[in-house]
Design a protein around this nucleic acid. Sequence first.
DNA 1: CTCCGGGTAG
DNA 2: CTACCCGGAG
Length: 205
Amino acid sequence: MSHYDTKRWWPHESRFEIVVGAILVQRTRWENVEKVIEAMRSRGVLTPSAISTLDVLELERMVRPTGFFRQKSRRIQRLAHHIHLYHKGDVTCFLKRPYQELASDLERMDGIGPETRDAILLYAAGHPVMIADTYAIRLCDRLGLLDPVTPHAIKNHLMQHLPTTPQTCRRAHAAIVEHCKKRCCAVPRCSGCPLLDMCEHGATK
DNA sequence: CTCCGGGTAG
DNA sequence: CTACCCGGAG
C-alpha cells in the first residue's frame, strides 16, 4: 500500500482537473473520466473561465462518455462559473480557504454531495478527510465492522483509527478502493482474500 | 442481452 | 424510492 501516491491515484495536471474529475467520476469508471479530461485538455478548456463561457452543448459532447452528460456538463459549468465569478477564475483561491468555509461552499453546489465534497476537500484542497464511498460502505458492511453502516459512521470510524494527515487519508482511501476492485466487488471473490478471517460475509460462505 | 461503475437530487 | 446516462464486461 505504500507505493500509492496521489499522482498515481488521482492523476492530474491541475487542481481544477481534480475538481472537474470529482464530478465526472460519479457512478462512472475512471477510464471514461480520463477520456473526457483529455478531450477538454486538447480543446484547451480546463480552466474555470474557459468552461464558464463554453457553449453548454459543446461541453455536453465532451462529457458524454462519463454518462449523465446533461447533468454533469451543467453542474461543471455552474461550478466553473462560480469560481470565475467569485474567485477571479483562480481555483487555488477558491480552494485555499478555511475548511468549514470551503466545505459549506461545496455543499451548496448543485451536483456536489457528501462524497464529491470530501473528494475535493482531500485531493484538491489537501484537507485530511476520509471518504465514505461505495467501496468503503460495502467493505464495512461485509466485514461487519459497524452496526449501522452509514457514511458518517464510516468516516468517524476511519478517522478515529488512523492518523489523519492528508497522506494517510489518501493512502487509506486508495487501499480500500484497490481492495474492493480486486476482491470485494459487487460479486465478491472471497477465496484467497487477505481479510477473510475477520470478515462476517466471508465466514458465512 | 443484463449488470455494474470512486453519486446526487427530488 | 427513482431518474439521470454511457461504455465495458460477461
